[in-house]
């Protein structure tokens, strides 16, 4: 009796685990580039990029990220949290003594699940830019005149499955 019901349960779980197959590919957001940029970018009125870079490091440590890559020459820092959530921040100079920070997060709901680009404005606001603004003692402004599209350098892979690409087109 127990064997039958446990066997049935095992079959259901096996089916679900096959559906969530192990892959390092990232499923990118289907939201528009402008909407993504708005939620992922903020401008700070300081020309001191070094200070902003240090603040990002401090915020990532406060949030419990293990730093995975640090490339100050490129203004990039990445961290990983609990092997489930990757966050990359790019800190760049903007005209008029300002600094723009763009964050990109990739998450999976479980260790053997596929990775998804995070496209929640609430996430970027609450889990990154608010603490960053507090660390800098500066207000975060929206990037009103974004520069031409730049690729955010990520530590992980960002290959899109062919099926997702063809859906967008």
């Amino acid at each position: 009796m127990i064997r039958n019901s446990l066997g049935a349960g095992a079959l259901i779980l096996a089916a679900f685990s096959l559906m969530g197959c192990q892959t390092d590919e990232v499923i990118l957001s289907k939201k528009g580039a402008l909407e993504l940029r708005n939620m992922q970018s903020r401008v700070y009125e300081t020309g001191d990029q070094s200070k902003v870079y240090r603040a990002v490091l401090s915020v990532m440590q406060d949030l419990g990220y293990a730093i995975t890559t640090v490339e100050p020459e490129a203004g990039v820092v990445s961290g990983n949290k609990l092997a489930l959530l990757d966050l990359t921040a790019a800190i760049n100079e903007k005209q008029d003594e300002r600094t723009v920070v763009r964050a990109n997060a990739i998450v999976r709901t479980h260790y053997q699940q596929p990775r998804h680009q995070v496209d929640s404005a609430e996430f970027y606001q609450q889990r990154f830019f608010e603490p960053l603004s507090q660390a800098l003692f500066l207000d975060a402004l929206y990037d009103e005149d974004p520069a031409p599209a730049e690729e955010v350098v990520n530590a992980g892979d960002q290959k899109t499955p062919e099926e997702t690409r063809s859906n967008d087109q």
């Binding site: 949030l63 949290k81 959530l85 997060a105 998450v107 709901t109 995070v118 996430f123 609450q126 889990r127």
Partner: peptide, 13 residues
């Protein structure tokens, strides 16, 4: 959803 999960685990530990 992945976004929900990110919001949940993205806070301070």
């Amino acid at each position: 959803t992945p976004n929900d999960h990110a919001l949940k685990i993205g806070g301070p530990p």
